[in-house]
Amino acid sequence: MTLPTDPPTQTWLQRHRMIITPLMFLLPGVAFFAVYVISPILQSFYISTFEWTGLGSLSEQGEFIGMQNYRELMSDRNFEVSLWNNVKWLVLYLLAIPGGLFIALFLNQTVAGIRVYKSLFFFPFVISQVVVGLVFSWFYLPNVGLLNVVLGWFGSEVNILGNPDLATYGIIAAGLWPQTAYCMILYLTGLNAVDPEQIEAARLDGAKGVRMLWHVILPQLRPATFIAFVVTIIGALRSFDLISVMTNGGPFGSTRVLSFYMFEKALSEYGFRMGYGSAIAVILFLIMLIFISYFLWTMWRDERAARL
């Protein structure tokens, strides 16, 4: 009988290979993550404590001002408007989830040519956000836009993108169009995975309609709902392109969100305040961190539950 003990000739590397191998595999990912994700975050924190035009080197041209940028943010009305707009985006954008679910349920049937209908509904998600923005701004145009032509038949008109109280909602509506399509496709794939036996069993027990949906179908769609929630929140927070195309932040700054305001202050034609822009970016990051933590926590919980 031979004992599988380590022969003394083994090198240090061989003895620790169970630890070293995974570390080696992790190394490239961790390195890139550190260089391209972690360090820019820390850099943003660092730059946000400076007054700097973004030109020349930070150490020569920048002036350290501590928390001054954040103090200014607290009393900046444009920042407040942007923050509230972000909240509006986050809340209203979630309408894409029930909207997508509804369309998915509607399309989840076997009729001739259903694939064509499905792809037509999915179409808005395929076109670029910039095109969506353009189409909707034409749709909203005063006098000649389709919306106002139709409203004109009833003797009223509204310049949605020119009205500071309505413009943000107009843009969100444009954003919902492709986002609903995205959620729909997520639910359609989810519906394919619904267990027909459970439905059969529920039907035998007399469940149907809303009760069937709520107690039998939706619980099985939980993974799809989770993904739809994640992509919708992310979509709401990076609503930059639609705003840029449709209103350019206007009228008088009423449609800005934090990411757009950050761009304006730090990088745009008239923006030479890198420090202030970074401070806005940090706030935006902290807001995102709430959601990121929630997502990570949910995933961690689910994985642990699966392992037990």
Partner: peptide, 22 residues
């Protein structure tokens, strides 16, 4: 306006002018 005034003043100023016109 946007070449004579400093960049940030021009941006904030022109936004105010637009608001005034409406």
């Amino acid at each position: 306006f946007d070449r004579d005034f400093p960049a940030e003043m021009a941006a904030i100023g022109m936004e105010g002018l637009q608001e005034f016109m409406v």
